[in-house]
Computed example of a mutant assay.
Amino acid sequence: MSWLWSWIPEFANPGRLWTLALLPALVIAYLILLRLKGRVALRFTNTGVLGRVVGTQRRWTRHVFVAMSLCSLVALGLAYANPLGTEKVPRERATVVMIVDVSLSMSAEDVEPNRLDAAKQAAVEFVRGLPDSFNVAVVAMSGRPTIAIPPTTDRGATERAITSLELADGTAIGDSITTALRAVDMAPPGGDGEEPAPAMIVMLSDGTNTEGPAPAEPASRAKAEEIPIFTIAYGTQNGFVDVDGQRENVAPDTATLEQIADVTGARAVDADNRASLADAYRDVGSVIGFEDVAKPITATYAFVALGFAIVAALGAVFMAARWPR
């Protein structure tokens, strides 16, 4: 039934919905009038005369026109409560923290020329596509995650931080989330009286958590702070690297990344080549670059009420007219 609730709008003045309480009373009154009319009709034994007096009407059409009248009243009652819809508008401010995996598995060459170089290029393109007013930070994910650059609007400095990322041992996904949350706290405050800019994290990883705490607890903390974590599972299932003469498979842990995104109310996407990685960043950018803003849709409900009222009015004219026989 959750799908049903999603169709129910929010209202700017929900207290005005009391007007809908009149609807059951009107329905009951209509049913009572129908019973009384039936009793009166039984008094006339000459049905031919009665037919000439009241004319011929299909019973079901009368009910339809009454229903249209009631629907018009319902729509007007909802319009009176000022229903609100949502409209996507570009964000004016935001803090975006990019977590880029730099573990040794990023040297795999299943993505040309290798995972890390392709990831750097895609990350730079992603940053260039963000609004200039967004503060962007970069966290290097390894066994010891570090803030490569704190939140800043200097795109040149951010791009240099991304291109200077180097391979390191280990993959600490949980600690990387904690580090990203710390980077969010480093964002410059807004003007006087302004609320803190909304923050979001974009994590690209090609491996499994190998060090530090599990990602579940840091992800829950991000959820509590209303910071969504968008994840990109990067690389193919057949990717490999040679470590100490041993060939190791380095397939991305898609299940963990999906869980992180789900917990924080964000989106998880996969990328197994340069094109799909660019698409993944573009997909994420289309989400974080906009926000849902409440918008009055009273006119829509009033228009629906007008439509019902027109049909009901035509029905009243139809029932009142004496058509030639």
Rank of each mutant, 00 (worst) to 15 (best):
D253W: 07
A168V: 00
L314S: 10
A81Y: 04
T254H: 12
T86W: 05
N46P: 05
L165Q: 02
R91D: 07
G48T: 07
T256M: 11
T171A: 14
L50G: 04
S105Y: 05
I99G: 01
S276Q: 14
F308M: 13
N273A: 04
R325W: 08
S72V: 13
I32Q: 11
E211W: 10
A271Q: 04
M1Y: 09
G285T: 05
V311T: 08
P145Q: 10
A75F: 14
Y80R: 15
V49P: 02
G170L: 01
D192Q: 14
L42M: 12
V138D: 06
T171R: 07
L204Y: 02
L73G: 09
T45K: 15
R160A: 09
G170H: 03
T300C: 03
R322N: 11
I32M: 09
T158I: 15
R144I: 11
D242C: 08
M1Q: 10
V127C: 11
Q259N: 12
A280Y: 02
P9F: 00
T264P: 10
P150W: 02
I99V: 13
K223G: 07
A187Q: 05
F308E: 03
I232R: 00
T298S: 15
L204R: 07
A25D: 00
G212P: 06
G15C: 07
A140L: 00
R160M: 15
R221V: 15
V27I: 14
A320V: 11
G307V: 13
S205L: 00
R62E: 14
V139Q: 09
A312H: 01
P228Y: 09
A294T: 12
L42E: 15
I99A: 05
I149Q: 07
S164K: 10
I177Q: 06
A222I: 04
G289H: 00
G315N: 03
L78A: 12
P150S: 10
A216M: 05
E10Q: 15
V241D: 01
T178Y: 05
T45E: 13
E159C: 06
G235C: 02
D206G: 08
